[in-house]
Computed example of a mutant assay.
Amino acid sequence: MVSGQQSEGPAAAAARLTGFGTVSRGFSGALSEITLTDGHQHFDAVVKRGHAPGATRAEAAGLHWLAAADAVRIPQVHGADDTWLVLDRVTETSPSHAEEFGRNLARLHSAGAPAFGAPPPDGLADAWIGTAPMENSPGESWPEWYAEYRILPYVRMASEILDTAVFERACTRIPSIAGPTEPPARLHGDLWSGNVLWDADGAVLIDPAAHGGHRETDLAMLHLFGCPQLERIVAAYDEFAPLADGYRERIALHQLFPLLVHTVLFGRSYAGQATAAARSLG
């Protein structure tokens, strides 16, 4: 970290990272909305301060990786370092173009990843989902990788409020219920409805925990936390890139990851849902 950046404000950080001047600003906790100018035109930006050193740089790497697929719409990143991230502000409107989002999400997933657990280029192996740790360690077999890196670490973190045996049994079931083998998909990784913004041209994705994974995991997150026009999104996705038979029966399996993350972050209010999902696997 450059000396003085720790006490630097969002406007100064945005100016330093972009080289643009500040026209106006509005602060709100870890996020600030700032209008910047290059001397000829203005643009609205969001300046985000990371919760941990490196978190904003990791997020920027994820945004660049998702944008490189030329599929879903991603805010342009104007600058990032280990403390700050500056990107385009999305002017939100009512949800629209649901089918286009479904097809574009399928295109994103089909862009692929080198392995399950692969981080974005320039991303971090020790990353985050929200403020919870998330290890990006590559694996070849999705059932084993998912159990080792996306279920059991969070069970251990929340072991005081979870019956760990329930989740250990669930992990033994994954190979037999995971469905047909699929290649690693390029995942957003934290695709709950709050990270799907809608402007006049449709959906824009923010705040990724990007990594290589199973495409059904992104879709399961949309089902778990809800999303406007979800059935239209999924139908368009399925038409463009057909989902394997039994997709809906596997939703609970893929929801284990976000439910356990939320159990770690928010405690007992999610522990019951996580346990119920694990028991439903048989």
Rank of each mutant, 00 (worst) to 15 (best):
His51Gln: 14
Ala274Leu: 04
Asp199Asn: 11
Trp198Ser: 02
Glu249Asp: 15
Ser269Tyr: 04
Pro138Ile: 08
Ala185His: 01
Leu253Tyr: 05
Ser141Pro: 00
Val196Leu: 12
Leu265Val: 09
Cys227Gly: 07
Arg103Thr: 14
Asp163Tyr: 09
Arg173Phe: 00
Thr93Tyr: 00
Ser7Leu: 11
Asp245Asn: 14
Gln229Asn: 13
Gly26Trp: 11
Arg103Cys: 14
Pro53Trp: 06
Ile129Leu: 13
Ala113Pro: 07
Asp163Trp: 05
Ser141Glu: 14
Arg156Thr: 15
Gly29His: 06
Glu148Gln: 12
Ala252Gly: 02
Tyr270Phe: 14
Asp88Thr: 13
Ala132Lys: 07
Tyr146Gln: 03
Pro114Gly: 14
Ala15Ile: 09
Ala68Asn: 10
Thr217Cys: 15
Asp163Lys: 04
Trp198Glu: 00
Ala235Thr: 12
Ser24Thr: 12
Trp128Cys: 02
Val90Glu: 03
Ala106Phe: 03
Glu231Thr: 13
Ala52Val: 10
Phe266Ala: 11
Leu224Val: 06
Trp192Val: 06
Val23Glu: 11
Phe27Lys: 07
Ala178His: 01
Gly226Ala: 05
Phe167Ala: 04
Arg25Pro: 00
Ala209Glu: 06
Ala200Lys: 15
Leu36Gly: 03
Trp84Tyr: 14
Tyr146Ala: 06
Leu256Glu: 10
Trp128His: 12
Cys227Glu: 10
Gly123Thr: 04
Arg73Leu: 13
Tyr247Met: 01
Asp88Tyr: 08
Gly50Ala: 12
His211Lys: 00
Tyr146Glu: 02
Arg150Tyr: 04
Thr172Pro: 07
Ile151Thr: 03
Ser269Gly: 10
Ile129Trp: 07
Phe20Lys: 10
Leu256Ala: 08
Ala15Trp: 00
Met221His: 02
Glu140Ile: 00
Gly79Asn: 02
Val264Gly: 05
Ser24Lys: 12
Pro180Asp: 15
Glu216Cys: 07
Ala115Trp: 06
Asp38Met: 09
Phe20Trp: 15
Ser32Arg: 00
Val261Lys: 02
Ala111Trp: 01
Trp84Gln: 04
Val2Arg: 13
Glu92Asn: 08
Asp44Tyr: 04
Gly50Ile: 05
Thr172His: 15
Arg215Thr: 00
Glu148Pro: 02
Ile129Asp: 04
Ser96Tyr: 05
Ala113Cys: 11
His97Gly: 01
Thr37Asp: 09
Phe240Asp: 14
Leu87Phe: 15
Phe257Arg: 14
Ala125Gly: 13
Ala58His: 06
Arg186Ala: 03
Ala170Arg: 10
Val166Lys: 07
Asp218Pro: 03
Thr37Glu: 10
Pro95Ile: 05
Ala115Ile: 01
Ala106His: 08
Thr275Met: 05
Leu152Ser: 12
Ile233Asn: 01
Gly189His: 05
Arg16Ser: 09
Leu224Cys: 05
Lys48Leu: 06
Val234Ala: 13
Leu243Pro: 00
Gly54Tyr: 11
Thr18His: 08
Ser32Ala: 15
Ala45Glu: 04
Ala12Asp: 15
Ala127Trp: 05
Ala13Gly: 08
Arg49Asn: 01
Gly39Lys: 13
Tyr247Trp: 12
Ile251His: 12
Val234Met: 15
Met157Lys: 14
Pro180Thr: 15
